[in-house]
């Protein structure tokens, strides 16, 4: 199922991550074992629209788009929710900024388990690594 949403520039990257996990069962296994957590991303784009994605690294090991999410939803119970603008989320995914910087400037907000949320950047970069120059 596609998780790309028009008007959300970060969503194609989430789609890419999904494909990466789908094609690599070993990666899926190890990342579930390592993180064992479920993150919610509450993304707001420049038109004022909001969407909610769930990065499930507990059961299925994928990213899902959740329509009309509410926090009491017992099915999509997340460990922590990260609220961020679409543009900044794209920057974060492409390693153009750091979650710490965004958090310190109030551009990234966390609710729920802070400890798990602190590791989310590392997980995202593990799933979508930036290309490295080769010798």
């Amino acid at each position: 199922m596609s998780v790309t949403v028009d008007g959300f520039k970060s969503s194609p990257i989430l789609e890419e991550i999904n494909t990466t996990i789908d094609n690599n069962s070993k990666l899926r296994k190890s990342i579930i074992k390592q993180s064992n957590s479920k993150f919610g991303f509450n993304i707001k784009n420049n038109k004022g629209q909001s969407r909610f994605w769930v990065l499930d690294l507990k059961e299925n090991g994928n990213i899902r788009l959740v329509e009309n999410y509410n926090a009491d939803d017992s099915i999509e119970k997340v460990d922590s929710t990260i609220s961020i603008s679409d543009a900044n989320f794209k920057k974060l995914l492409l390693s153009k900024t750091s979650s710490q910087k965004l958090f310190m400037t109030g551009k990234l907000k966390i609710s729920g388990n802070m400890v798990k949320a602190a590791g989310v950047e590392k997980i995202l970069h593990g799933l979508y690594p930036s290309p490295k120059a080769k010798l």
Partner: peptide, 17 residues
């Protein structure tokens, strides 16, 4: 793969779906 993955990343950065 590396050439193509990096090409994709460039297109993503340009918002060229």
């Amino acid at each position: 793969n590396s050439l193509m993955e990096t090409l994709k990343r460039a297109f993503l950065s340009m918002d060229r779906r």
